[in-house]
Design a protein around this nucleic acid. Structure first.
Lengths: 219, 219
DNA sequence: GTGTGTGAAATTCTTCACAGCG
DNA sequence: CGCTGTGAAGAATTTCACACAC
């Protein structure tokens, strides 16, 4: 007699690289859903996001839902699965701190609005700037950060201030309850607790990284 | 008799994470050099860039130059060492394709200019935009990309076009000889050869990644 | 004592390989 | 067959631990 002991598979915590790939896969699935295609193989997903089919299957394995052998994955089911696991169906409220060129560019980046991320506040330390900015999104002086963040239930923030302001701004955001920060200032910010995640993106560093790589492979 | 056989250490190819950290360390050293501090320990470097002291020592080990036990590393010597290895002393020429809000913001990001990266061209498909843009940097229509890139010896590029243009632009850049690309469009671009490096940064994905992480750790 | 250099261990992540399903 | 699911192998990184230098 065969005992159908279904051994629970890989259900450890999801590795970060997997989370990152699943986010990319998610967007890809959105695109594909718009086309006629309603099924997709791990191989094709892999080709699109730049990974092997094995990796993709492992990644999807963490979600728990199964694909159909021989056919691949059901596009909308898989997308829904990722959304559910990562909370993408719940609208997230975000803000931008630092309304210079980059900050306003992001504030107006219409794409974000459609994607269950809503930018509901902008902050700048210059009263002048606050008065001249043309936008539908309410803007506030920086000293109100933690109050507004609390009141508006903002969970995500983008920092586009000059370097010297970044650290203080970061503290205020976290005091207010922000849980994820994208920091474009060239000051590396560290999460004060495991409940907060920070993504430091510095353009100059990115340039350097690319430059270093191709310099190295010319040796 | 003791034979002083100096076994050559870790001299394999430098791992990517190490390259990335060394780029951050490099910037940090620049900052510190401006202050009075002329020596720094692996522990402090680690704290600043968010890594353990062990990791930092390993990273620096790849460079070949040694620190001084008990004192740490000589700041300017280490910086020079990184610059030399990664070619940071050689001025790199860059361009921006897509002169929307984000593109122009980056084009005017004065920091880059000071850092041995010079933005020497902008491109856009709209003649209108080319005519109205106010900048010292020469701008061209996109169909001239590969010519201008070749002529101006441009090695780095930033893509800030809408999605549908990204792929074609990427090809033209690479035809012209670009070796490193930062792509801000939400289309994932793949390097056609090992000689080209591409860094795909999509804002929405970054939001999702952060959002996913904090959603997961609330479970 | 403080701090580096580095093999070795531990961990994390990716790739392989192959059984099993449609 | 083609394609998924998954343990096991393998590779890449990080962390440890401790000898040695200042």
């Amino acid at each position: 007699m065969k005992i159908s002991l279904k051994k629970s598979p890989d259900r450890g915590p999801i590795p970060k690289p997997t989370i990152s790939r699943l986010c990319k896969i998610y967007r890809m699935l959105e695109d594909i859903e718009k086309d006629d295609q309603d099924t997709i193989s791990s191989k094709e997903i892999g080709k699109r996001i730049g990974a092997g089919s094995h990796t993709i299957r492992k990644d999807i394995g963490y979600l728990g839902e199964k694909g159909t052998s021989g056919a691949g994955y059901n596009v909308s089911k898989l997308r829904a699965q990722i959304a559910e696991r990562f909370g993408f169906d719940i609208e997230k409220r975000a803000c931008i701190v630092g309304l210079g060129r980059l900050g306003t560019a992001i504030m107006n980046y219409e794409k974000i609005l459609n994607q269950n991320f809503r930018i509901v506040a902008g902050f700048d330390s210059s009263i002048n700037k606050l008065e001249t900015i043309r936008t539908d999104i309410p803007v506030y002086p920086t000293y109100e950060i933690s109050d507004v963040v609390k009141r508006e239930n903002i969970k995500l923030a983008v920092i586009t201030t000059p370097v010297d302001a970044a650290e203080k701004v970061c503290r205020h955001l976290i005091d207010g309850g922000v849980q994820g920060i994208i920091n474009f200032s060239p000051k590396i910010l560290h999460p004060p607790s495991d409940m907060v995640h920070i993504n430091n993106i510095d353009l100059v560093d990115e340039f350097r990284f690319l430059s270093a790589q191709y310099t190295l492979d010319q040796k």
